[in-house]
Structure formats: C-alpha cells, structure tokens
Design a protein around this nucleic acid. Structure first.
Lengths: 208, 208
DNA sequence: GTCTATAGAATGATAGAC
DNA sequence: GTCTATCATTCTATAGAC
C-alpha cells in the first residue's frame, strides 16, 4: 500500500514537473492532485527537492532500462535485420530509437525536465546516488554508441562526442515540441518526425 | 537622465533575465544591481512583468535592427561577393548569420530567454504592441529567407517553414551552449561552431 | 524621484490531535 | 499516516516622509 501511494505521488510529480517545471510546481498542487493533505506528503518525502528527486530518479531508471534493453537488441523498434548491420549503423539506429523514445515521452507529458539553473534541485540531484548512477550509466551507453557511429562515419566525426551527448539530452527539453503542439497543425507522429529530422539531418537539405 | 536611468535598469534586467530567467529573478536583485531602492523601480515600471517586458522589447528591437541591416546587405558578416550569389544561397547565408549572431549574444549573457510556460509574463508580452510588432517583423524577415532557401533546396523543403522558424528560435535558448561552456573544454567560438553545425548540418555525417 | 518601512499574498514546512 | 491549523519565509507591491 505504501509503495502504491508513493507511486501515485511520483506519477503526479512527474506530470506536474514536465508540465510546469520545478519552480512553478507547488507542493499544494501535488497534494491536491494525489488527493491527500500536504502534511501527509511530508511524511513520505522530506522536502520539495526530495519529491522532485524521486520523480527524476524514476524517470532516469526508466531510461536506463530502455537503453539496456536496446543494448541487448530486444527492445521494440529494433528490426530483426539489425543483426546484419555494421556496428556503426546499428549504433546510429539505437541512438535514433532512443531519441525518438525520449521525444514520445516528452510529448506525452511524462518527461520531467531538469531546470538547467535551479541550484537547490541540482544540488539534491548531484547528491543522490541513484540519480547519479543512472545518469552515468545512461551516458556510458549513449557514449559508446556515439563513438561507434562516429568511427564508421554515420555520425559527424568532427563533433566532440560530449557535444553529441549534450545535443541528444537537449532534445528532451526542446521547446520546438510544444510550439508545434500548440500550433495544432501536425499530429504527434509528424512532430516527432520533424524534430528527428532537424536533429539528425539538420535544417539543410541533404545533397541527393 | 531619466532615459539613462531606465537604460541602466533594462540592462540589468536583461542580464539577470538571461542568467536566471523570469521566475528566479527578484525585483530586489534588480534594485540592488542598479543601486536604487525597490520602490524607486516601481516609479519607472509598474510591475515585474513590465520590467521584463521592457527588456524583451529592447532585445527584440535589437534583433529586428540586425535583421533589417542584413536584409539590405549592409550588416557585418556579409561578404561582398554575396551579391553574386543566388537568392536561395543568399537567404541561407543570412539565416546562418542571424543564428550565429543570436548564439553569440546568448553566450555573452545578453539574450533574455523567454520561459516557455510562464503565463503572466506571456500575457504581458502578448499585450505589448512594441513586442508583438517586433516579433512579427522578425518572423516575417526570417520566414521570407526560409522560403527562398527552401525553394532552391538549400534548406530541406520537406520541413514546414514554421518548424524551421521555431527551430531557429529554439537555438536562442539551447542548453547545449551552457553545458559546453561549463565543461570548459572549448572556446566560445568553438562552441558556436559546434551548435551551428548540429543545427544546420545535423548530427549525421554529411555524405561526401 | 528616492528612501525606509510595511502591507498582503503565496508557499514551503511543521505541530499536534485523531 | 492522515488530517486541520498554523508558522516562517520570501516576494511583489505600496504608503508616506523627505
């Protein structure tokens, strides 16, 4: 029961965090959405930062699990023919599948976006072993694929690998998604295709 | 004197806005940085939103002036040989020059970033004639160049022009810039080159 | 126009009964 | 563990003297 209650809490936090960000989210809102009193929340989590941290850890673990599955080639979205691909092309496909997965989560409002300049939340996250472990594991897996894809020229070898990693992270909080969503001119799938194209192929036309 | 004082205020607001965003910026900070009492600030600007709005209008006007200058081909960064270029290539070069200019301002901490989900500030901005006029003028100029560049295939014609516009806007608040800045592995020029590459050429390697 | 001092509201966090 | 009621802090905005 306690686990289920705390799961409901982190789910609500996750949604609110992705909708309005850490600063704009109030503890009162969380309590109201879960349907319990604010004081009860504080019996489960010691602070607003701890609340957000729990949601971020959960999201990070979900990402880690997805990547681990993709690494073993068992995740959905990986075609069976992938075994016949070169290492580099396979790595690129996995990077693209990961990015697409992230964009989908973001569009569904399940991707808590880390505010790049809130000090108190950053400090809490950096001090959280589960979060940092997940973050490093995710960076390791993605970094390996980036190197493989660059080695065979499927990703631009002139870009520093860390810059590629940051660029992929940044797609998870790209405002272009919500801009296009607000314009109501495109389906979710079209929006994701557009952002995937600009991310990997760029704005320039590809020479035919 | 009054103009100079208000200029000093908007400069401070501009800096704080680009450093921490609207929510994290407090009116006390602004007053302290300008060196006057908070109540005096409110003699010049009626609210925190009006304060931020003034800074945004100023930034928008600066952008508009830059684009107007580029449109006439008199701005710096435009080579003299540009007159010999095709319309489409010329348009692409101007889009790239505009993006580079934006990234430079952002790195220098002079680009107030619009929080995509603060309602009160958004409402104030939408109600501001000077801001909306500037925004529409900027969108017009960029939109024209986008269409020209797409027509001749210098920009991917498969992308909706509005998506290209949003993508360029989004580069002005791309966290990749500060991530790379924090890593201290690259100079400002290198950082801008990296982001320019990922923006226009994408992460993929270009087929030679 | 500038200051000090403070009102008023929002919000994070806690006390104490049940 | 959950509730109601309340505290302490922070922040926007204003009053009133000079």
């Amino acid at each position: 029961m306690l686990v289920a209650r705390e799961q409901a809490i982190t789910d609500s936090v996750n949604r609110l965090l992705s909708e309005k960000g850490f600063d704009a989210m109030t503890v009162d809102e969380v309590a109201a959405e879960v349907g319990i009193a604010k004081a009860s929340l504080y019996k489960h989590f010691s602070s607003k930062e701890a609340l957000a941290c729990a949601a971020m850890v959960q999201a990070m673990q979900k990402a880690q699990e997805f990547l681990e599955g993709l690494k073993k080639g068992t995740a959905s979205g990986q075609s069976e023919a992938s075994q016949a691909q070169s290492m580099g092309l396979n790595a690129l496909n996995k990077l693209m599948a990961s990015t697409r997965w992230t964009l989908q989560l973001k569009l569904m409002g399940q991707m808590p976006t880390l505010p790049s300049h809130n000090s108190t939340l950053r400090a809490t996250l950096m001090a959280s072993r589960p979060y940092m472990d997940g973050l490093m594991r995710v960076a390791d897996i993605l970094g390996e694929w980036i190197l493989q894809a660059q080695k065979e020229g499927f990703l631009n070898p002139g870009l520093p690998p860390i810059a590629v990693l940051y660029t992929l992270y940044a797609r998870a909080c790209d405002p272009v998604l919500e801009f296009l969503k607000m314009s109501e001119q495109h389906s979710d799938e079209e929006i994701i295709d557009i952002v995937m194209t600009t991310c990997f192929a760029g704005l320039n036309a590809r020479p035919v």
